[in-house]
Amino acid sequence: MNIAFSPCPNDTFVFHAWVHGLIPGAPELNVTYADIDITNTLATKRNGPEVMKISYAALPWVLSEYALLPCGGALGRGCGPLVLTKGRSADNSDPSLISGKTVAVPSERSTAYLLFRLWAAKNVPGGVGQIVVMPFHEIMPAVRDGLVDAGLVIHEARFTYPTYGLTMLTDLGNWWEADTGLPIPLGAIIAKRSLPLDDLARWTRASVEYAWANPDASRDYVMAHAQELSHDVAKQHIDLYVNSYTTNLGESGYAAVFSLLDRASEEGLVPQIDLAALKP
């Protein structure tokens, strides 16, 4: 079975057991490690992988072919994307600092970018200027080097951005949680609708539970794909993004996804969908 997910620590931690044949009855996996911008695009292709990790924001474009699995993804609290700028000003949290400015983002169909657009529409006077898409690990160096005015970052950048001399303009996760009271829906696991979805969910959940029960088993695999992160940062990353929502979206998880896509549809940012179709 073909699967695509990112090389980030949370994904490799979640799927380690399945990838290494440790889940009884689960099929062998052929893994493609790819940045979220790539998987969001792969999901729209006719011959895309059977299972993959994409942004929740990309779901409206793929639901005719793929179903959302209720586990394996990334939702949570205190784990949202950040908007970063270089240096300091009199008010580092003033949204007008990026009015008309160039902002780097990890994907135009990422949840991070969707949250950013919803936030900017309400908070950035006159709106931002040019949007530049680049791999997320290139964004902080680009802000540091003055290639862009601001950057939208995800994942372990939450822990490492001060080392680049950058300042947080806003935490979009905090904004979302304050505005909705819901967790932040970031990454979804989807599967072709022609597959045995209940089995896929069971195998995915078993892989997560194995990872929790054997936290050292995946260490070498995680670090081999961690893009030069330290073990401590990789562990922080896993602890933040692998949580109870990873084993079961639950009512609040589905409510978060419904709210995000419904708001985005009302703003004309994503196609309108039948939100009930997200839930099995």
Rank of each mutant, 00 (worst) to 15 (best):
N2F: 11
N10A: 13
D11I: 01
D11H: 15
T12D: 00
F13D: 03
V19M: 06
H20F: 06
P24A: 05
G25V: 09
A26S: 01
E28A: 15
N30R: 14
N30W: 11
D35E: 13
I36F: 01
I36C: 07
D37W: 10
K45C: 12
K45F: 12
N47W: 12
P49Q: 07
M52P: 08
Y56K: 00
L59H: 04
V62N: 04
S64Q: 13
Y66Q: 06
L68G: 02
P70G: 07
C71S: 13
G72V: 06
G76H: 02
G80A: 06
P81F: 08
L82T: 00
G87I: 04
N92H: 06
S96A: 12
G100W: 04
K101L: 08
V103P: 04
A104N: 07
E108D: 11
S110L: 00
Y113M: 13
L114E: 07
L114R: 01
R117C: 10
L118I: 03
A120G: 03
A121S: 10
G126K: 00
V132I: 15
M134A: 15
P135A: 01
F136D: 13
F136P: 08
H137G: 09
E138H: 14
E138Q: 15
E138V: 07
E138R: 15
I139G: 03
V148G: 02
G151N: 04
R158I: 07
T160E: 14
T160A: 12
Y161G: 06
T163S: 14
L166M: 08
T167F: 10
T167P: 03
T170P: 02
T170A: 14
G173C: 03
W175G: 02
E177M: 06
D179L: 10
T180C: 01
T180R: 01
L182W: 05
P183L: 02
L186E: 10
I189R: 01
I190L: 10
K192A: 08
S194N: 14
L195A: 09
L197T: 08
D199W: 10
A201L: 08
A201C: 06
R205P: 08
S207C: 01
V208P: 09
V208G: 06
E209T: 10
Y210V: 04
A213C: 07
N214H: 15
A217E: 12
R219I: 13
M223R: 02
A224E: 09
Q227K: 13
S230Q: 00
H231T: 12
A234V: 10
K235V: 14
Y245Q: 05
T246G: 09
T247R: 14
T247I: 15
N248G: 13
L249V: 09
G250R: 08
G250F: 02
S252L: 11
G253T: 01
Y254R: 09
V257W: 03
L260G: 08
A264H: 05
S265V: 01
E266V: 13
E267R: 15
V270I: 06
L275R: 13
A276S: 15
K279T: 11
